[in-house]
């Protein structure tokens, strides 16, 4: 008897413990998502009172909108680019700090990690000054050594500015990836390396056969952080290029903002949001299956 009543109590208590988190997420994340899905089937302005049902019209419009595809392409570019630069350099630096250099480890680690804690808005302002075509120190240096800086500016030429965004993002985030990998490296038992050394595996071969498998999970987490970050990117683009010139550096986040708040196409913006949401959920699902396998 007492066993079952305590189970009842347990059940109520469990519900009570779950409630605050579920309530917050439900009300402020899930309900707005549902509202966004509903809104994506309508055409309406931010101030207009009558909604016109357009069915899948907004989605059809996105499929035919070249700027949408540019934005999506830019998101993918930033995702792949940041995986290569951030996870790549992060792993390199972590490896150097873990088994390469003997002195100054803490100094390097502290310095390289530092930008992680600086606000991306502050970061953007400093880089805007650095990249300024007329008064920026970068052009001063480039001209000083007799080279010609890009005609449209570092952040003004779409063929260059996307790479510059990668540079800024790497500047800020490599330290975070480095620390993740470093923790993974330090969790690998030293005996493994000793045993391998006895078998003649050292240096590069030890890295491939012991280190990489040992940090597989950590690299996966790092890659996922880059993917999610690349999908959600907004601040960096909004402040540095504003999506320009002429929408060439637009990403889905900034394009949604433009459609919603500058052009007042709320239904279309909702549809763009939903597309982003589906892509993000896809990656969420991927994470779930991968983490289960791990």
């Amino acid at each position: 008897m007492s066993h079952s009543s305590s189970r009842m109590l347990d059940r109520w208590m469990s519900a009570g413990m779950l409630a605050p988190a579920l309530l917050l997420v439900g009300v402020l994340v899930l309900i707005p998502s549902v509202l966004a899905v509903v809104g994506s089937f309508y055409e309406f302005g931010i101030t207009s009172q009558n909604w016109v049902f357009v069915g899948l019209g907004n989605y059809a419009r996105a499929m035919a909108d070249p700027i949408f595809w540019t934005a999506l392409k830019n998101n993918i570019f930033l995702i792949i680019g940041s995986i290569i630069t951030q996870v790549g350099l992060g792993t390199l630096f972590a490896a150097l700090l873990d088994r390469g250099v003997r002195r100054g480890n803490t100094f390097y680690r502290t310095m390289i990690f530092m930008p992680v804690i600086i606000s991306s808005i502050a970061v953007a302002f400093v880089w805007i000054l650095i990249f300024d075509p007329n008064v920026g120190p970068l052009n001063a240096v480039i001209k000083g050594v007799g080279l010609t800086p890009p005609r449209l500016g570092w952040l003004g030429d779409p063929n260059i500015s996307l790479y510059m965004l990668l540079v800024i993002a790497a500047w800020q985030n490599v330290g975070f990836q480095m620390v993740l990998v470093l923790a993974g490296l330090q969790a690998i038992p030293k005996e493994l390396y000793e045993a391998a050394a006895l078998d003649g595996a050292k240096g590069w071969r030890a890295f491939v056969h012991i280190t990489l498998p040992g940090i597989r999970n950590v690299l996966m987490v790092g890659t996922l952080i880059c993917i999610i970050g690349g999908l959600k990117v907004f601040d960096l683009v909004f402040v540095t290029t504003g999506g320009g010139p002429a929408n060439a550096t637009q990403v889905i986040g900034s394009y949604t903002y433009l459609q919603a708040f500058t052009l007042g196409n709320m239904g279309y913006a909702d549809a763009l949001s939903v597309i982003l949401l589906v892509v993000a959920l896809g990656f969420g699902w991927l994470q779930l299956t991968l983490s289960r396998r791990g």
Partner: peptide, 13 residues
């Protein structure tokens, strides 16, 4: 699933 929902997606509502 909610972890994957970006904040811009729900900005207006």
């Amino acid at each position: 699933a909610s972890f994957a929902i970006p904040v811009q997606s729900v900005l207006v509502p």
